[in-house]
């Protein structure tokens, strides 16, 4: 029987603020899981700390709500131990790019086949709106006392530099588009980042839903607002690396696109490269049975509860006879 997005709902009360961008992300994710036909017990949602960190509790799938900044280590540990699970990591921009920046970068070196959603709203919401790593220099959202002294970082550029093999951006209120991006990210072989622009109606009064929609920019010809967002798939842009020679050019093109901000903000897939071996392929090269007998599936004792392996090879080197 086909799955419906409601199969992924729990009865836990959703305590995000009214109008929060997270609702769109939650719904898009539930729809994605259903449309991909992923059985709930095969899915593990791993999250960090913050408003986004609560998301797994609202989804009927295995949920692991971890520590601030540590979503990627947990998610990679789960996936590497049991590669048959569909592992989706979820965290805020402060979580992944501030306290968790080291893990963000190093995950790119491994290219573990997981999907990583960053709920990017420019603020630390749950601690009442301090500036996050993506808030631009000199901006003053209403929740901070003085303009931001730090430059904002660009998750797309950082991910490309770090070696992520699928890098995309989506918008929390365009759930249809977000869902399509999520589907591709999950299907992608390797580490996929989806940077999701997520208005925080409570603390970020600059990058609001209205601002993204361009309500302040009325087209004199049509009299309609001109959205700041546009879709990469609607212009002449191919993010995919088709052969290894293209890699550098595609990365440079993606970085150039990612630099756009302000009145023209691209969403969609910036970069995609499945030619880089994913981590499970690297392990399987050394351990040919890895995918059929991953760590989590190995039998470690026999029917008498005695250890299931011989250690002669270790002992042979150590024997003194």
């Amino acid at each position: 029987m086909a799955l419906s997005w409601t199969d992924f709902k729990t009865d836990v009360f959703i305590d995000w603020c009214p109008g929060c961008g997270n609702y769109g992300i939650l719904t898009a994710l539930q729809m994605t899981l259903a449309e991909l036909g992923l059985e709930p017990h095969r899915v593990v949602l791993v999250s960090g700390i913050g408003c986004s960190g609560k998301l797994p509790h609202f989804v009927k799938a295995y949920g692991v709500h971890t520590l601030h900044g540590r979503v990627l280590p947990f998610a990679q540990g789960i996936k590497i131990a049991n590669p048959s699970l569909e592992v989706i990591a979820i965290g805020g921009d402060g979580d992944g790019l501030g306290i968790g920046a080291g893990h963000f970068v190093n995950a790119g070196r491994r290219n573990v086949d997981i999907t990583y959603l960053i709920h990017n709203n420019g603020v630390y919401g749950l601690t009442k709106g301090q500036a996050s790593p993506t808030l631009k220099l000199n901006l003053k959202v209403k929740s901070i006392p003085k303009p931001n002294l730090n430059e904002g970082m660009n998750p797309i550029i950082l991910a490309i530099a770090a070696g992520y093999t699928f890098v995309a951006r989506a918008y929390a209120y365009d759930t249809k588009h977000l869902k399509e991006i999520l589907k591709q990210a999950i299907r992608h072989k390797g580490l996929a980042l989806v940077d999701i622009l997520q208005p925080c109606p409570t603390y970020n009064d600059i990058n609001t839903k209205e601002w993204y929609a361009g309500l302040d920019r009325i087209d004199p010809k049509t009299g309609k607002p001109m959205s700041r967002l546009y879709k990469l798939e609607e212009i002449d842009y191919d993010p995919t690396v088709h052969n290894p020679d293209e890699e550098l050019d595609k990365k440079i093109a993606a970085i150039e696109k990612a630099k756009e901000w302000g009145d023209k903000i691209p969403i969609g897939i910036f970069y995609k490269n499945e030619l880089v071996p994913a981590f499970h392929e690297r392990i399987a090269k050394r351990m040919p049975f890895y995918l059929s007998s991953p760590p989590a599936k190995q039998i470690i004792h026999d029917s008498n509860n005695s250890p299931a392996i011989y250690i002669d090879e270790f002992l042979e080197e150590l024997k003194m006879t």
């Binding site: 791993v46 692991v64 971890t66 280590p73 947990f74 998610a75 990679q76 540990g77 789960i78 590497i80 131990a81 049991n82 699970l85 760590p295 989590a296 190995q298």
Partner: peptide, 8 residues
């Protein structure tokens, strides 16, 4: 810890 949750 993440790995341990999978049973390994």
């Amino acid at each position: 810890s993440g790995a341990a949750l999978t049973g390994v």
